[in-house]
Design a protein around this nucleic acid. Structure first.
Length: 497
RNA sequence: GCCAAGGUGGCAGAGUCCGGCCGAACGCAGCGGCCUGCAGAGCCGCCUACCGCCGGUUCAAAUCCGGCCCUUGGCUCCA
C-alpha cells in the first residue's frame, strides 16, 4: 500500500515517490510575522505536522523546512509609537508563533530560516537570474521577466498574456510587462503602502517606514521581493529539487507560481515534485480567517478555550484540502471527539492493567477491531492524508474497547494491549494528541492526591445517605475542572486542562 | 471576465481518482432504552439522506459524460 497525494501541479492524485527512496524533502511556506497566528494558520501547521509524522511512520527520513517572513510591509505597518523597529516587531511575533507551535505539539522543523538572515542567498539567486537573462534591473529594482520563462503559469493554469492584459500598466512603469514581479525592490518602504495595512495604535506611516530594514546589493540599497525568499531558502536548506512543497491554497498564484519560475529558471531543475495546498479555514459567518480581518480566533485563544488536543482534533477532522468550517458548534464537537478518544484510551489502559485482564481470554471481536482499525487508519492516511477517515478508524477501535470492557468481567489482555498500543501509535504519535498525559509533574500528583481525599469524604457522605452533600462536592469539583464519575469500583476522576 | 476547488442527513463531514459491498462511514446535537441513589461515562436503537438542478451513458451512478444554478479561493497583502 503506497501513499497517494493530490498534486496541484498536475491536478491529479498521484503515487508518491520521493527522489531518494529513503528520505523526503519537505518545505512549508510559513507565516509573515506581522500578527499573532490564527486558527487558519494552525490548520496548515497541524496538517503539515501530521504529514511529517505519517511520512516518518512510513519509514522516510523527513527533512522539513519552514520559513518566517520577517521582512514585509505589513510588519512595518505594526510598528508602534514607542520607538521599536520592523525587526523588533518581527522578533516579538516570531516569539509568539513559536509558543503557539509548541502548544500545538508540532514536531520541530529542521530549520526555520528567516528572510532577514537569508539576504546573501537571495542576492546570489537574483544575480543568477539576471545573468541567465530571466531578470532585469530598472532604477535600482530587479524584476523577473515572465515572458522569458516558457512554463510560467503551469501551476495555476494562468495565461501570461491574459495576466498582462489585466495588469495596471501605470503601477511601476519600469516593468517591461505588467505581469513581471519584483525580485529586489529599490530603497525602503513607501509610507503609503504602510498606511494601507495599519491598525489603530500604529506609529505615523512616515515614522514606521523609516524603521524598515534595507540591505546593500549590487543594485544599491533595497529590500527583497516577496517571492524570492522561498526559492532561496528552499534551495539553500534542502536542495534544487525538493519532494513536497506545501502551502495555503491562497498562495497558488502568484506566490508559488513565481517561486517555480525563479527556481526553475535559475537551476534548470524541477523545483518541487509535489505541490500540496491546504484549503483555507472558513468561519461560520462566511468571513474567511484572514489577518486582514479582525474576526478570527488566534491560536492562543483557541488553545485557551478548548485545549490543544481538541484544537488538533478539530483541525484533523477534515481532510487538508477540503472545506472546514470553524464555529462554536464544530469546536464543541471536536471537544467531544477528543474526550471520547482520551476516555477510550484510558479505559483500555486501566482494563489492561487490571487484575481481571487475563492472557487466557480471547475476544475475537476486539482482536478483529484492532486489525481493522490499523488497516483502515493506514489506508486513510495513504489516501492523500485523509485524516478524517483515519480519525473514524480510531473511533471504531475505541468503540470496540468500550464494548469489550462493558460486556466482560474478565478482559482479553492481549487484545487490550494491542488496542492501547494502536491508539498510542496512531492517535498519539501520528496525530500528535496528548493521550494519557496525566502528567508526571509534582503539582499534578499533589492535585490528584487532594482530589482522592475529597472523594473519600464524599464516599462517606454517600454511604451515610447524604446525597445532597455528595452531589454538591461533585459539582464543586467539576467547577474546578475535575470530572467525577461513579463506577462499580468506586469513584474515578479526570483532570481537565 | 479568467483560473481553481466544491455543492451529501438538524449540524459537521467521509465516500467521487478505480460505477455495483452506499438506502451512504465516523461524529455532534436531540429522543428512547440498558446501567445508575442521582448525574456522567459507556452500550443498544431512533431521528437519518432518493447524495445542487436537468439530461445522457450503463444491467447498474453520490461516483462517468454534457448543460445549468449556487458557494468558496486566486487573478500580484494573506496559511
Amino acid at each position: 500500500m503506497t501513499l497517494r497525494v493530490t498534486n496541484t501541479l498536475t491536478g491529479d492524485t498521484e503515487e508518491f515517490e520521493p527522489a531518494d527512496p529513503d528520505s523526503v524533502l519537505l518545505y512549508y511556506c510559513g507565516l509573515t510575522t506581522s500578527d499573532p497566528a490564527h486558527l487558519g494558520h494552525a490548520r496548515g501547521w497541524v496538517h503539515v505536522d501530521v504529514m511529517h509524522r505519517w511520512l516518518e511512520w512510513l519509514g522516510y527520513d523527513v527533512r522539513h523546512v519552514e520559513n518566517f517572513t520577517d521582512v514585509n510591509e505589513k510588519i512595518v505597518a505594526r510598528v508602534g509609537e514607542n520607538g521599536e523597529s520592523e525587526a523588533d516587531v518581527a522578533r516579538s511575533y516570531i516569539r509568539s508563533i513559536i509558543d503557539d507551535m509548541r502548544s500545538l505539539n508540532l514536531r520541530r522543523a529542521e530549520v526555520y530560516p528567516r528572510v532577514s538572515e537569508s539576504i546573501p542567498e537571495i542576492i546570489d539567486l537574483v544575480e543568477t537570474l539576471i545573468e541567465k537573462g530571466y531578470a532585469y534591473e530598472a532604477n535600482g529594482s530587479v524584476y523577473f521577466d515572465v515572458t522569458s520563462f516558457d512554463d510560467y503559469g503551469k501551476l495555476s493554469n494562468q495565461d501570461p498574456e491574459q495576466l498582462d492584459a489585466q495588469g495596471d500598466p501605470d503601477e511601476r512603469s519600469e516593468k517591461r510587462n505588467p505581469a513581471d514581479f519584483a525580485l529586489w525592490k529599490d530603497g525602503g518602504v513607501a509610507p503609503g503602502t504602510v498606511a494601507d495595512h495599519q491598525h489603530d495604535e500604529a506609529a505615523p506611516p512616515e515614522e514606521a517606514a523609516e524603521t524598515a530594514q534595507t540591505w546593500d546589493s549590487p543594485w544599491g540599497e533595497g529590500r527583497p521581493g516577496w517571492h524570492i525568499e522561498c526559492s532561496a531558502m528552499s534551495t539553500t536548506h534542502l536542495d534544487d529539487t525538493i519532494d513536497i512543497h506545501v502551502g495555503g491554497q491562497d498562495l497558488v498564484f502568484p506566490h508559488h507560481e513565481n517561486e517555480i519560475a525563479q527556481s526553475e529558471a535559475a537551476t534548470g531543475q524541477t523545483f518541487a515534485q509535489y505541490w500540496l495546498h491546504v484549503r483555507l479555514l472558513d468561519a461560520a459567518d462566511d468571513e474567511k480567517m484572514s489577518s486582514s480581518l479582525g474576526n478570527f480566533e488566534t491560536v492562543d485563544e483557541a488553545i485557551e478555550a478548548y485545549g490543544p488536543d481538541a484544537v488538533r482534533t478539530f483541525l484533523l477532522s477534515t481532510a487538508y484540502h477540503n472545506e472546514a468550517v470553524y464555529s462554536r458548534e464544530t469546536m464543541d464537537e471536536a471537544v467531544e471527539r477528543w474526550e471520547g478518544l482520551q476516555r477510550g484510551y484510558e479505559r483500555a489502559v486501566e482494563a489492561c492493567d487490571s487484575v481481571d485482564a487475563r492472557t487466557t481470554i480471547e475476544d475475537t471481536d476486539l482482536r478483529e477491531a484492532v486489525e481493522t482499525s490499523r488497516e483502515d487508519f493506514a489506508a486513510a492516511m495513504n489516501d492523500d492524508f485523509n485524516t478524517r477517515a483515519a480519525l473514524a478508524a480510531l473511533e471504531e477501535l475505541v468503540s470496540a474497547v468500550n464494548t469489550h470492557v462493558d460486556s466482560h468481567d474478565e478482559y482479553d489482555y492481549r487484545g487490550l494491549r494491542e488496542a492501547v498500543e494502536t491508539l498510542a501509535e496512531f492517535a498519539g504519535n501520528v496525530f500528535g494528541l496528548g493521550l494519557g498525559d496525566t502528567g508526571s509533574g509534582g503539582d499534578v500528583t499533589l492535585a490528584e492526591d487532594l482530589v482522592d481525599l475529597v472523594l473519600s469524604v464524599r464516599e462517606q457522605e454517600r454511604e451515610a445517605g447524604n446525597y445532597k452533600r455528595a452531589d454538591d462536592l461533585r459539582d464543586e469539583l467539576e467547577a474546578l475542572g475535575v470530572e467525577v464519575q461513579d463506577t462499580d469500583d468506586g469513584p474515578e476522576f479526570r483532570l481537565n486542562n
